[in-house]
C-alpha cells in the first residue's frame, strides 16, 4: 500500500503506527523522524570549507539534490548484508522479507548492493567524511547558478580525498577509483528513491 511505502524508510521511528490516520498526519509524523537527520546534513555541509562561500541558491540546490545520497552513505552501516536485515534508526531490525512486504522492492536490493560495496571498503571516519563532502558538492546537479564555483570546490575536495586515500593506503592504487565509482551508484539510488516518493504522492 502507499502507506507502507512511506513507513518502510529506515529513518522512520514509527513504521508500524496505528492506522486510520490521514496522509497529512502520516507525512507530519514521518517528518518528525527525518527532519533531525536533514538538519545534521545541513550542519555537516556548513562545516565543509568553502561551502558557505557558495551563493545561497547553490547551497540549497546542492543540499536538496544531495541529502538523500549523504544519508545513504551515512546509514549504509544499518544494512547488514550477512544477516539480510536493516536496522532502522529506532533500533528495530527488519528482515529483507518484512521490508519487501512493506513495499520495498528494487530500491531495497540496490541499497543492499551499495551498502555492501561501501562497507567492504572499511573507510575511516575521516575518509567517510571527505567522501560525503564530495558526494554533496557536485557541480552537475541541475539548477546550479554558479557552476564554476561549485566545480572549483568539488575539485578541491576530490584532490583532498585522493591525497587522504593514497596516504592511508599507498599500496592500493585502485581504492580511490573504486570510491569515486560509488558516485554514479548513489545517483541511481537517488533516482529510484525519488520515483518511490513520487509514486506515493501520486497515489
Amino acid at each position: 500500500s502507499t502507506r507502507d511505502v512511506l513507513l518502510a524508510c529506515p529513518m522512520n521511528m514509527n513504521p508500524h503506527a496505528g492506522s486510520g490516520r490521514t496522509a497529512q498526519e502520516i507525512w507530519e509524523d514521518f517528518s518528525l523522524s527525518f527532519t533531525p537527520a536533514v538538519r545534521e546534513v545541513v550542519e555537516f555541509a556548513k562545516h565543509i570549507p568553502g561551502f558557505r562561500d557558495l551563493c545561497q541558491h547553490d547551497q540549497v540546490t546542492l543540499l536538496k539534490a544531495g541529502t538523500f545520497e549523504v544519508l545513504m552513505v551515512r546509514f549504509a552501516s544499518l544494512f547488514n548484508v550477512k544477516e539480510q536485515t536493516v536496522k532502522f534508526i529506532s533500533g528495530t531490525k527488519y528482515s529483507l522479507e518484512e521490508l519487501r512486504q512493506m513495499g520495498m522492492g528494487d530500491l531495497l536490493n540496490s541499497m543492499f548492493d551499495f551498502s555492501e560495496k561501501l562497507n567492504n571498503l572499511s573507510l575511516t571516519e575521516e575518509e567517510l567524511a571527505l567522501f560525503t563532502a564530495v558526494v554533496l558538492v557536485s557541480a552537475d546537479r541541475s539548477s546550479i547558478k554558479n557552476v564554476d564555483s561549485v566545480e572549483q570546490l568539488q575539485e578541491t575536495l576530490i584532490r583532498a580525498l585522493r591525497a587522504l586515500i593514497m596516504k592511508n593506503h599507498p599500496n592500493e592504487t585502485s581504492r580511490f577509483t573504486k570510491l569515486l565509482l560509488k558516485l554514479p551508484d548513489l545517483r541511481t539510488l537517488n533516482n529510484l528513491h525519488s520515483e518511490k516518493l513520487l509514486s506515493f504522492r501520486i497515489d
Binding site: 517528518s31 527532519t35 545541513v42 547551497q59 543540499l63 536538496k64
Partner: peptide, 27 residues
C-alpha cells in the same frame, strides 16, 4: 508536484537550518 524534495518539505527544512533557525515546520 514533480519534485520529490518539495513533497517532503525538504527545501523548507534546509533553508531554515542554513539560516540557523532551530524551529522548522514541514508543510
Amino acid at each position: 508536484c514533480a519534485d520529490p524534495a518539495s513533497n517532503l518539505g525538504l527545501e523548507d527544512i534546509i533553508r531554515k537550518a542554513l539560516m540557523g533557525n532551530i524551529e522548522t515546520k514541514v508543510e
